[in-house]
């Protein structure tokens, strides 16, 4: 029963991931991709339980990250559609839910990496700080973007991303201050 819950949670999460592909691509292949993901997931779960599910997610996230970007770059129409979707989404409060989801997905990367690579060793505090940093960064972008013209969103994203990277570097190793370990 527990395994079934994990599988359907994974399938729900994958559905959300599919929404990030260009709409035309989703319409053409979304159902098939979900089908394939479900079969891979069930097979891995039957063979290795929760560990198998974790391995599938590690591969799926890497695959999705590359293929979502590739499909958007390949699809000019999809690119325009994504920009419109993003613009609409920024104005709605549910965008904070998406930021939280994206934060959770990004935190899965070190969490899964820790299982395979002893060089990655994050404490609970590291996850909390990075989670807060990611969520706050996303929220600052949204709140700022709502107040400026869309033509300047790229600049806002650049400044916010630069601020995020600076804070990350400062917390990790220290740049000008002594926050780093």
């Amino acid at each position: 029963m527990t395994n079934h819950v994990e599988t359907s949670f994974s399938e729900d999460l994958y559905d959300r991931l599919l929404n990030l592909y260009p709409r035309a691509f989703q319409q053409q292949f979304g159902e098939e991709m979900r089908f394939v993901f479900s079969e891979v997931l069930r097979e891995a779960e039957a063979a290795s339980g929760v560990w198998g599910v974790a391995v599938v997610w590690r591969r799926t996230l890497a695959d999705a990250l590359v293929s979502i970007i590739t499909q958007h770059l390949n699809d000019q129409e999809g690119h325009a559609t994504m920009k419109n979707h993003l613009a609409d989404l920024v104005m709605e409060n549910k965008v904070f839910g998406w930021i939280a989801l994206a934060t959770g997905l990004l935190l899965l990367i070190p969490l899964v990496a820790m299982q395979f690579n002893s060089g990655v060793n994050w404490s609970t505090g590291d996850f909390v700080v990075m989670g807060a940093l990611l969520f706050i960064t996303g929220s600052i972008f949204v709140l700022t973007a709502r107040r400026v013209d869309r033509a300047h969103w790229g600049l806002v994203a650049f400044v916010v991303a630069a601020g995020f990277l600076y804070l990350w570097a400062e917390l990790a190793v220290g740049v000008f201050l002594t926050w780093g370990s």
């Binding site: 098939e32 991709m33 394939v36 591969r59 695959d63 999705a64 590359v66």
Partner: peptide, 27 residues
């Protein structure tokens, strides 16, 4: 073949060296 069958065949043909995720496969 259908998508899942392609994925499994490629994995078998390459002794697991090439593992296609759904995004790469359908792309």
């Amino acid at each position: 073949r259908h998508g899942y069958d392609i994925m499994k065949q490629v994995e078998a043909d390459t002794a697991g060296q090439v593992q296609l995720g759904p995004g790469t496969l359908y792309g």
